[in-house]
Write a protein that binds this DNA or RNA. Structure first.
Length: 425
RNA sequence: GGAGGAGUGGCAGAGCGGUUGAAUGCACCGGUCUUGAAAACCGGCAUGGGUCACACCAUCGGGGGUUCGAAUCCCUCCUCCUCCGCCA
C-alpha cells in the first residue's frame, strides 16, 4: 500500500496518479478521507498515550507508597487509575475502529503509476513499447490451433484433466510432458546464468503472505482458499518468493537481491469461458518461472530494463515473434507502478498471447511487507520487482502453433538439448 | 495423532509482579593508542507511533485476561525441540 506520509506530503501527485487510473473526482475523495482519518488517528493516539503515561506514573507511585506503608494515599491513586483505565478502554476501542477504517481505505488505493504510464482505459490503449520488427509469420489456412495439434500428437489431454479434477486442469503426456519439463529447466538455467538464485518455495501460503504481496484483499476471488487451515494456493510464484524478506531489514550492500523460482500457479479465473480461452489460453493450473528482485530505490528502473532484456532474450532463443507493451493506467495492475507485458504472436490463432508481465512495484509491496534497508542512519523501504520468465502454458501453445509443419512440430535449437528430441511427430 | 519441554534485541543468554526497552558476552559502527593491523580502553548500537527536537506511548512468538502495575501470573493459538505412533 502507499505510504501514509507520502500520501500526506504529495497529495496532488497521488491524485494525479489516480486520475491516470481513471479515478473519478468523486472517487478521488478517498485521498482526503484518508488524511482526515489519519488526523483522527493521531489525535486519538495522542490522547490515549497521555492517559497511559499518567497511569504508568501513578502505578509507579503506588508501588512506592505501598512500600513505605502509606496505604491510604495508595488507595486514592488506585481509584484514579481505575478511572483512567475506563477512559483508556473506550479510547482504545475508538482507535482500533479508526485504524481499521484507515487500513480499509488505504487498501483501496492502488499504486501511483510511473510518469511514463499512458492514460487509457482498456488493453487497446496500451502503448507498443517495442514492436516486432520483422514480418509476422503466416500460416496456411490448414494451420491447426494448439488444442488440435495436441490431439494429433497426443501432447496434452484436457478431457482427462477434467475427469481427474475439473475444467482448466490440463494433463500433459508423452512429448508434451517432456516439452513442458524442458521449458522449465531451460528458463531456470537461463535465470541462473543471469545471476538469479534458484528458489523452490511452498506452493501454499498463509494469509499474511497473500496480504503482503497484494493478492489480499484485492484479488481474493482469484485464489483457491483452503478454509480449514486458512491457507491459499499460490496464484504466482511471486507470492512465496517475495515474502522471503517480509519484515526484514537489509543492509545497502545486500542489493541487488535476485531470485528465481519455478512454481505451478493456481487461478480460479471465475467465469471465464469461451472461444478466447480454449485450449491452454487460460487454465486454472499452469507452470511458470518467475524472477523477483529487491532493489535500492535509485536503481529499480535500471533493474526493470535488465529484466525486460532477460525475458526478451528468452523469446529470442525460442525464436518466437513477440512485442512489448507498456500498460496504460486502466490495464495496470493494482500494485504496480509500471508494467511491461510481453505478447507472443500465435500464427495459427492469429492473435497475440500474453506470456509475461514485468513490473516495478516501487515501495507498494515493501510497505505492506515491511521490507526495508539501512540507508546510512535511516531505514527506508526497498523497491520490489518481478516478472514472468516465462509463463509456460501459452509459450507451449505458441511453440506448437508457430512451428507446425507437414512433418511435425519443430523444436527450437535452444531447447533440443533439454527435450532430447528435435521434432514432435 | 499422543506425552513432555521451550519461545527474550543480529546471535548467545540473564531476568520469572514495581526506574527492565530489558543485565552480560559476542558481532557490528565510531574514537583513543599504533608506522599499519591486532590487543586494550572509551562511546554508540531494536522497531514502530509521536515531536522542530525532546518528552511521552507501544512492542520480550500472536491474540485475550488477571492486577494500581506483567517479559514475569492465567487462558488460547502458532512455532520449535525431545520421546512414542504413523509415513513418502
Amino acid at each position: 500500500m502507499l505510504e501514509l506520509n507520502f500520501l500526506r506530503v504529495n497529495t496532488e501527485r497521488v491524485k494525479e496518479g489516480l486520475r491516470v487510473r481513471n479515478f473519478s473526482d468523486e472517487a478521488l475523495s478517498i485521498v482526503d478521507d484518508i488524511i482526515n482519518l489519519d488526523d483522527r488517528r493521531k489525535a486519538t493516539q495522542t490522547e490515549l498515550d497521555s492517559l497511559l503515561a499518567e497511569r504508568n506514573t501513578l502505578s509507579r507511585e503506588i508501588g512506592q507508597l505501598f512500600k513505605s506503608g502509606q496505604k491510604d494515599e495508595a488507595e486514592q491513586k488506585r481509584s484514579r487509575v481505575n478511572d483512567i483505565k475506563e477512559e483508556a478502554a473506550s479510547l482504545e476501542e475508538a482507535l482500533k475502529a479508526i485504524k481499521t477504517e484507515l487500513d480499509e481505505a488505504l487498501y483501496q488505493v492502488p499504486n501511483i503509476p510511473h510518469p511514463s504510464v499512458p492514460k487509457g482505459s482498456t488493453e487497446n490503449d496500451n502503448e507498443v513499447y517495442k514492436a516486432w520488427a520483422e514480418a509476422l509469420p503466416e500460416m496456411g489456412s490448414d494451420a491447426l490451433p494448439h488444442w488440435e495439434l495436441a490431439q494429433k500428437y497426443n501432447l496434452f489431454d484436457l478431457e482427462l484433466g477434467t475427469k481427474i479434477t475439473g475444467s482448466g486442469f490440463p494433463l500433459y503426456r508423452g512429448k508434451g510432458a517432456r516439452l513442458q519439463r524442458a521449458l522449465i529447466s531451460f528458463f531456470l538455467d537461463e535465470a541462473n546464468r543471469a545471476g538469479y538464485e534458484e528458489i523452490l518455495p511452498p506452493l501454499i501460503v498463509n494469509e499474511d503472505s497473500a496480504r503482503a504481496t497484494g493478492q489480499l484483499p484485492d484479488k481474493e476471488g482469484q485464489m483457491y482458499h483452503i478454509e480449514k487451515d486458512g491457507f491459499y494456493l499460490i496464484p504466482t510464484g511471486e507470492v512465496p518468493i517475495t515474502n522471503i524478506f517480509r519484515d526484514e531489514i537489509l543492509s545497502e550492500d545486500d542489493f541487488p537481491v535476485k531470485l528465481t523460482g519455478y512454481t505451478p500457479c493456481f487461478r480460479r479465473e471465475a467465469g471465464s469461458y469461451g472461444a478466447h480461452v480454449r485450449g491452454l489460453n487460460r487454465v486454472h493450473q499452469f507452470d511458470k518461472v518467475e524472477i523477483v528482485r529487491y532493489e535500492h530505490p535509485d536503481r529499480s528502473y535500471e533493474a526493470l530494463e535488465e529484466m525486460l532484456a532477460h525475458v526478451g532474450g528468452l523469446l529470442d532463443k525460442l525464436e518466437l515473434p513477440y512485442r512489448i507493451l507498456r500498460l496504460c493506467g486502466g490495464d495496470l495492475g493494482f500494485t504496480a507502478a509500471l508494467t511491461f507485458d510481453f505478447e507472443v504472436y500465435s500464427a495459427a490463432q492469429q492473435r497475440w498471447l500474453e506470456v509475461s508481465s514485468v513490473s516495478n512495484f516501487e515501495t507498494y509491496q515493501s510497505n505492506r511487507m515491511k521490507l526495508r534497508f539501512k540507508d546510512g542512519k535511516s531505514t527506508r523501504l526497498a523497491h520490489t520487482l518481478n516478472g514472468s520468465a516465462l509463463a509456460l502454458a501459452r509459450i507451449f501453445a505458441a511453440l506448437l502453433e508457430n512451428n507446425q509443419t507437414e512433418n511435425g512440430i519443430i523444436i527450437p535449437k535452444a531447447l533440443q538439448s533439454y527435450t532430447g528430441f528435435d521434432l514432435i511427430d
